[in-house]
């Protein structure tokens, strides 16, 4: 079966995110107040052919850690697309 997967890659806590900081600084000018802790990241979508949901997630996690993210600076979370 083909399982639709989503992988979210975000910067680890403590790693500077100048993009997120710039977005956050721009928000008040647009009238958005009370928005804080903006962090940017990437989302990947793909299908994994596997025998079970857990096997598909296992494959997704493995490739997310080896290729889609750099564990030194990023955290990758794989989930099944709802």
């Amino acid at each position: 079966m083909n399982y639709p997967i989503i992988v979210d890659v975000t910067l680890r806590e403590g790693i500077a995110d100048p993009e997120g900081a710039t977005i956050e600084r721009a928000l008040p000018a647009l009238g958005f107040t009370g928005v804080a802790h903006v962090r940017t990241g990437k989302t990947f979508r793909f299908g994994v052919e596997a025998g079970s949901e857990s096997a598909a997630l296992e494959t997704a996690r493995s490739l997310a850690e080896r290729l889609l993210s750099n564990p030194v600076i990023e955290r990758a979370v794989a989930r099944l697309e709802a």
């Binding site: 500077a16 100048p18 030194v72």
Partner: peptide
């Protein structure tokens, strides 16, 4: 070299973008 693990750490976007 950092991505390959031959040197430690990582290089990220410049402060100030």
């Amino acid at each position: 070299l950092t991505e390959a693990g031959l040197l430690p750490g990582a290089l990220v976007k410049n402060r100030g973008l």
